[in-house]
Design a protein around this nucleic acid. Structure first.
Length: 781
DNA sequence: TGCACTCATATTTTT
DNA sequence: TATGAGTGCA
C-alpha cells in the first residue's frame, strides 16, 4: 500500500514515554477532554453531552495518535455516520497536524468504509468488485417487480413496506436464513421468501443496497477468519462517532474488528439518540461497559454552547427519561436570556409571530444584540410544519432556506443521467436500462418493454442484449423499433468512448445530448424544467472532480450531498432530526403540542420508548440554541384539512420554570380579556412591529398578567393558564370557539375543557381558547 | 401518450 | 387539504 508514503514513519512510543512528552495539542482542552485524548489503550466510552466539544476531543485524539507515532494513519479506523462529519473530521485533524490527511484511508462513513472493504472481498459473497450500489429508488422498483412476480397485490402490500421490513432485518444483521421465527409473519408471511429472492436478484445484478454494504462485510468477517484477522491486526485504533446511533449490524462490524487490539473509542450521547425508528440501538451505548470489559467511561459535561437557562430547560426535559447513562451539563457562561414560551391561536399566527420576531431580532429591537438571519433557525418536528413558515416568509419577503429535503442525487434528472452513465459503462445494468429505455419518451411503452424483458429472459441475457436480439428477430416494428435501434447504437457508441478512455466530461455531454435527454428538458415547458437543466449542468461540473465516470458513480451513490452554498443571509428551516450536530444563536421551536410533538404515532407505535425518543428530540432541539430559544405552540392546527384543537406538549410541563419566561401572544384572550374587542391583538401587532416589547400593547398584557399574580406559578405551563378563565367556566355552560363554533362544556379538568360542539362534535380544548357564548356574540365571525 | 378523474394517504430519513 | 398513484378515455 503506497498511499501512506508521505507520512513519516515514527517509532511508537510507550505510554510512559508519552506521559513524559505531552502532545502540543492538549492545550485548551479541559480535564475530561484531555483524558479522552490521552487514554489511548483499551476501550473508551466518551459520553459527550450536547455542545461539550466532542469533535474537538475526537479529532485531537486522532492527531495525538498520529503525531506521537503511536499509530500510523492506515492503522486508524475512524467512522462517522455522515459525510459531513467525516469531512469535518478530516479537516480538523489536518488542521491540528498542519498537513493533509491523505494517508488516512479508513476515515469515513460506515457505508463508504463498508463499500471499500466489500470491493476488496466481493467475491467472497458472490459479487464482483465493481458492483453497483442501488439507491432507494432502484431498490423499490426491484421490490415491486418481485412482489408482482410473487403474485401479491402491490396495493395491499406496497413495496415501501417490504423495503422497511428488509431494511430492518439488514439493520439487525439478519440474512434471509437467519430471520427469527417471530418475524416469519412479516409481509403477509411472504417477507422472508421475498427477502431471499431480493438478495438473489441483487447478486445476479451484481448490485447491493446500502444495508448490504455493512451486512455483507459482517457476513464475510463471520465466515472468513483469515480476512477478519487481517483487519483486526490492521486496525489498531478504532474511533466511532455518534455511537448511540449505531444499529446491530454496525455494532457487530465494530465489535468484530475491535477484538484483537480492543482499542476502541466510542463517542456518543444516549440523550441524543433519535434514530431508533431507523434501527439505531441505544442499547449499544448503554451496554458498552459490558461489551468491552474494563472500559474507561469519560464524561464530557462542560457545555461551551448554550447559556445556563437554555441548558437548564433542556436538562429538565431530558431528566424525565429513564434508563439514561446520566450526565449533568454545566456551563461557565453568563445567564443570558430565559427560554421563552408562547402560545398562539393557530399555526398561521405562530408563523406570523415568528416571522415578526425574526425581523425584530435582525434589528436588535428585542433588547438583545442584532442577529443575522444566518444565526436563526426554526426547528420543526415534521416537515409538513415547514409550509406555514414558507408561506408566511414568502409573503413578507423574508429569505429562508430549507435544510434537508430531497438530496441532489435523488432528483429525477440526476438519476436519469446517472442511469445513462451506468449504461455507458456497462450494458449489463438492467436497472439502469429500465429506467431510461423510455426516458425521454421513445414510443417504447409497456408492451415494447415487456417484449424486451421476454427476449432477455428467454435468451438468458441482459436487457440490452435482449433488445438487440428482439430487433434482429423483427419482434418489434415501426417507430419503436427505429427508436430502440437508435438507443442501442448510442449505447454502443458511448461504451466505446468509455473504453477508449475519452475524457469523461466529454462522454457525459455526448451521452446527455445524444440520448435526447437534454433536449427533452429543453422542450419541457413546466416551471421546474429550467432548474432541472441547471442541475444537469451542475452534475457535469461535478464530474470535474473525478478521474472517470466509474469513480464518479461510486462517489455519487455514497457521498454526494446537497450542500448548496449560498452566501446570502437566510433563516434556516429544518426538522429536528436534520438539526442534530448543528447550532444557532437563536432557535425557534414551534409546534410543541401533544400529538404533534411528541408525535402521536411515535407514542402509539412505540409506547414509552417512543415518547422517550421524542423527548430526546426535544432535548436535541433546545440544545441547538446558543443564546436564545423560543418554544411555541398553537391552540388550533389544520391537520389534513380539518381543524384540530391542540393541547400544549407535555414537554412544556417538564421545562424548568425558572429557566422560562412566558410571553403572551397577540390574539390570545381568556376570561376578562375575552370581553375585549378583537382590536386588542391588532393594536399589539402594530405596536410590536414598531417598538417590540416596549410597545404599549405588550406592556399592558404584561401588567395584566402580573396583576393576576401569574408571574410565579409552579409549572411553566400553568403560567399560561388564565386563572380567571378557569373560574369563568362551569359544566353545562354554553361556549363559543372561533373554529368549532358553539358548544356545551361537559367536563372541566384543570385548564382543559371537554366540550360537545354543536357542529364539530366532541373536543378537548384549552380554556383560554373558548369564550362564554354570550361574550362571543359581539365578535364578528 | 396525455389528460382528467378517483382514491387512499398522510413522521422523522445520516447512507 | 394536497399529493401521488392508478385508471379510463380520446
Amino acid at each position: 500500500m503506497s498511499e501512506f508514503e508521505d507520512f513519516p514513519d515514527r517509532i511508537p512510543l510507550s505510554q510512559q514515554a508519552l506521559a513524559a512528552r505531552p502532545s502540543p495539542y492538549l492545550d485548551g482542552l479541559n480535564a475530561p477532554q484531555r483524558e479522552a485524548v490521552e487514554t489511548l489503550d483499551g476501550p473508551v466510552l466518551m459520553l459527550a453531552g450536547a455542545g461539550t466539544g466532542k469533535t474537538k476531543a475526537l479529532t485531537t485524539r486522532i492527531a495525538h495518535l498520529l503525531s506521537t507515532g503511536t499509530a500510523r494513519p492506515n492503522e486508524v479506523l475512524a467512522v462517522t455516520f455522515t459525510n459531513k462529519a467525516a469531512r469535518e473530521m478530516k479537516k480538523r485533524v489536518a488542521g491540528l497536524l498542519g498537513q493533509a490527511v491523505e494517508g488516512m484511508p479508513w476515515l469515513g462513513t460506515f457505508h463508504s468504509i463498508g463499500a471499500k472493504l466489500l470491493r476488496l472481498h466481493a467475491e467472497l459473497i458472490g459479487l464482483k468488485s465493481n458492483f453497483t450500489i442501488l439507491d432507494t429508488d432502484d431498490q423499490l422498483r426491484l421490490l415491486k417487480q418481485l412482489i408482482v412476480a410473487a403474485e401479491i397485490d402491490p396495493k395491499r402490500w406496497p413495496e415501501r413496506h417490504l423495503s422497511n421490513v428488509i431494511d430492518d432485518w439488514k439493520n439487525r444483521a439478519l440474512t434471509p436464513d437467519k430471520i427469527p421465527v417471530a418475524d416469519h409473519g412479516a409481509f403477509n408471511h411472504r417477507g422472508v421468501e421475498l427477502y431471499a429472492a431480493y438478495q438473489a436478484r441483487l447478486k445476479t445484478l451484481n448490485a447491493c443496497d446500502f444495508g448490504d454494504l455493512l451486512l455483507h462485510v459482517v457476513t464475510i468477517f463471520q465466515t472468513h477468519d483469515d480476512v477478519l484477522a487481517q483487519y483486526q491486526r490492521w486496525f489498531r485504533y478504532i474511533l466511532v462517532d455518534e455511537y448511540q446511533d449505531t444499529n446491530v449490524a454496525q455494532y457487530l462490524w465494530l465489535r468484530l474488528l475491535a477484538q484483537q487490539h480492543k482499542n476502541i473509542c466510542c463517542v456518543g450521547d444516549d440523550d441524543q439518540s433519535i434514530y431508533g425508528w431507523r434501527g439505531a440501538e441505544v442499547g449499544n451505548i448503554l451496554r458498552f461497559e459490558k461489551d468491552f470489559p474494563g472500559a474507561r467511561v469519560i464524561r464530557l459535561e462542560q457545555n461551551y454552547r448554550s447559556t445556563p437557562h437554555i441548558l437548564a430547560a433542556a436538562s429538565s426535559v431530558i431528566a424525565a427519561n429513564k434508563g439514561r447513562l446520566g450526565k449533568t451539563l454545566f456551563t461557565e457562561a453568563a445567564d443570558g436570556e430565559k427560554v421563552r414560551l408562547i402560545g398562539h391561536w393557530d399555526g398561521e399566527e405562530e408563523a406570523r409571530w415568528i416571522g415578526e420576531e425574526i425581523e425584530a431580532m435582525q434589528g436588535g429591537t428585542r433588547g438583545m444584540r442584532p442577529f443575522s438571519l444566518d444565526e436563526m433557525a426554526i426547528l420543526v418536528r415534521a416537515s409538513h410544519q415547514m409550509r406555514a413558515f414558507e408561506d408566511r416568509f414568502l409573503t413578507i419577503g423574508l429569505p429562508y432556506r430549507v435544510i434537508g429535503g430531497p438530496r441532489f442525487y435523488e432528483r429525477m434528472e440526476i438519476r436519469d443521467a446517472m442511469a445513462y452513465f451506468r449504461l455507458a459503462i456497462s450494458h449489463d445494468d438492467d436497472l439502469a436500462f429500465e429506467r431510461v429505455v423510455n426516458t425521454p419518451k421513445r414510443g417504447l411503452g409497456d408492451k415494447a418493454q415487456q417484449k424486451i424483458q421476454m427476449s432477455a429472459r428467454s435468451n438468458g441475457v441482459s436487457l440490452v442484449e435482449g433488445a438487440r436480439l428482439l430487433l434482429a428477430a423483427k419482434g418489434l416494428t415501426g417507430k419503436g423499433a427505429l427508436e430502440l435501434q437508435k438507443l442501442l447504437d448510442g449505447l454502443d457508441q458511448w461504451h466505446r468512448l468509455v473504453r477508449d478512455q475519452v475524457d469523461h466530461i466529454d462522454i457525459a455531454e455526448q451521452v446527455l445530448d445524444g440520448s435526447g435527454y437534454t433536449e427533452h428538458w429543453q422542450n419541457t415547458k413546466t416551471p421546474e424544467a429550467a432548474g432541472r437543466l441547471e442541475n444537469l449542468k451542475e452534475l457535469v461540473k461535478a464530474l470535474d472532480n473525478f478521474e472517470n465516470l466509474q469513480g464518479f458513480l461510486e462517489h455519487v451513490s455514497l457521498v454526494m450531498d446537497n450542500e448548496t452554498e449560498d452566501a446570502d443571509e437566510k433563516v434556516s428551516i429544518m426538522t429536528l432530526h436534520a438539526a442534530k450536530g448543528l447550532e444557532f444563536p437563536t432557535v425557534f421551536l414551534p409546534g410543541w403540542e401533544d400529538g404533534l410533538f411528541p408525535s402521536q404515532r411515535a407514542m402509539d407505535e412505540q409506547g414509552v420508548k417512543g415518547l422517550e425518543e421524542e423527548r430526546r428530540l426535544a432535548y436535541v432541539g433546545l440544545t441547538r440554541a446558543e443564546e436564545y430559544a423560543v418554544v411555541s405552540f398553537a391552540g388550533n392546527r389544520l391537520v389534513y384539512g380539518s381543524w384540530q384543537s391542540q393541547m400544549p406538549s407535555r414537554f412544556i410541563d417538564e421545562l424548568d420554570q425558572d429557566a422560562v419566561e412566558v410571553l403572551t401572544a397577540p390574539g390570545l384572550y381568556g376570561g376578562g380579556a375575552a370581553a375585549e374587542p378583537q382590536v386588542t391583538s391588532d393594536l399589539y401587532e402594530k405596536a410590536a412591529r414598531a417598538d417590540g416589547y416596549n410597545s404599549p400593547g405588550w406592556k399592558r398584557l404584561q401588567s395584566r398578567n402580573q396583576q393576576r399574580g401569574l408571574s410565579q406559578p409552579r409549572e411553566a405551563r400553568n403560567m399560561l393558564i388564565d386563572a380567571s378563565a378557569i373560574s369563568a367556566f362551569s359544566t353545562g355552560e354554553r361556549v363559543f370557539h372561533d373554529k368549532f363554533g358553539y358548544g356545551t362544556i361537559t367536563a372541566i379538568e384543570g385548564d382543559k375543557l371537554d366540550i360537545s360542539f354543536e357542529k364539530a362534535g366532541f373536543k378537548k380544548v384549552v380554556a383560554k381558547f373558548v369564550k362564554l357564548a354570550e361574550a362571543a356574540d359581539d365578535v364578528p365571525f
